[in-house]
């Protein structure tokens, strides 16, 4: 009972919980699930953009893109390491991912169809991820908060790189400008869905807010994202495919239309354009690499025995 009171005191005071501290089972489980899903998202997120590395149309863009996708692998690594401080096992979490028993961000179940998608993902998808993640730099679990500080720094690089690609493309040919607008049209609604279902339908929000694992509701974050994105779209010279999008002076915010939540749930349930492909790609890499991991383990064991 004292332990529980101490935990609540630390969390309420906005201090950090560390791996050796006592924590309620539900808190631990919720965190493992949330951080694992986040780690899976980083790893699955390598695929849509990785799709364009071999075809990037300039060597500078190829280098930027390869470095970015490599960063995402690094983010996955820090986050899996954070789950291990809670007693989870990376290999087990990977099994859950490739067997489809654990989720990742649905945004990565959409295809990247042109090189403009690389820029739009940087701008909108990394941008939405930052809106979601900046508050997590102050989340109650220490290792997660620290991982997020590092991740957010790199995500903001990605976002700038993406936006800069789009600015460059918009200064190019009409064909390039059309390509950018077409990509924005495809990614805008899915990016709004990255904040999760409306607050009224979101099951985990209340407890997570109390535990300071989550710090803002889905709808608050979505509004903030829209408010920040609209001026950027203006500056870029593109529009968002939402006829209801308009400045509301009374609220001091942009009004915007409702995402297609039927589509959202469809993708969450595994019927998105790329769900099967993404998981299969990860499963294949994992299985094809099994003999290499076994060899490394066997070699290390032999060396230890010899020493």
């Amino acid at each position: 009972m004292d332990l529980e009171r101490e935990f609540e005191r630390v969390v309420a005071a906005d201090h950090r919980i560390e791996p050796r501290d006592w924590m309620p089972d539900g808190y631990r489980k919720t965190l493992i699930r949330q951080i694992a899903q986040h780690a899976h998202s980083e790893i699955i997120g390598m695929q849509p953009e990785g799709n364009w590395i071999s075809r990037a149309p300039s060597l500078r863009r190829k280098a930027i893109l390869l470095a970015k996708v490599q960063d995402e692998a690094g983010h996955g690594l820090y986050l899996y390491a954070a789950t291990e401080t809670l007693g989870a096992d990376r290999a087990e979490l990977t099994e859950k991912l490739v067997e489809g028993r654990q989720k990742y961000s649905s945004i990565f179940n959409y295809p990247t169809l042109t090189f403009a998608d690389v820029g739009v993902i940087g701008w909108l998808v990394d941008g939405a991820a930052i809106c979601n993640q900046v508050p997590l730099c102050r989340t109650s679990y220490g290792p997660y908060a620290r991982a997020m500080i590092r991740v957010c720094k790199e995500e903001s690089f990605h976002q700038r790189q993406g936006y800069e690609l789009l600015l460059t493309m918009m200064s190019g040919t009409q064909q390039q400008r059309d390509m950018v607008q077409e990509a924005v049209d495809r990614w805008w609604w899915p990016s709004l869905m990255m904040f999760g279902p409306p607050d009224a339908e979101s099951s985990n929000t209340e407890q997570s807010m109390l535990w300071r694992i989550k710090r803002h509701t889905n709808d608050e974050l979505r509004q903030r994202y829209v408010d920040m994105s609209v001026p950027q779209a203006d500056k870029l010279g593109v529009t968002f495919p939402d006829p209801e999008l308009a400045w509301n002076a009374d609220r001091g915010h942009y009004d915007f239309g409702e995402p297609d939540w039927t589509e959202f749930w469809q993708v969450v349930k595994g019927e998105g354009p790329c769900n099967a492909q993404r998981v299969e790609h990860r499963r294949k890499a994992h299985e094809d690499g099994a003999w290499v991991r076994e060899a490394a383990t066997a070699y290390a064991a032999k060396r230890e025995k010899a020493a």
């Binding site: 390869l66 996708v69 692998a73 790609h281 890499a285 991991r293």
Partner: peptide, 10 residues
């Protein structure tokens, strides 16, 4: 990229 046997190797 995204196909290596381990994330570290990726």
């Amino acid at each position: 990229c995204s196909r290596a046997p381990e994330l570290e190797e990726d």
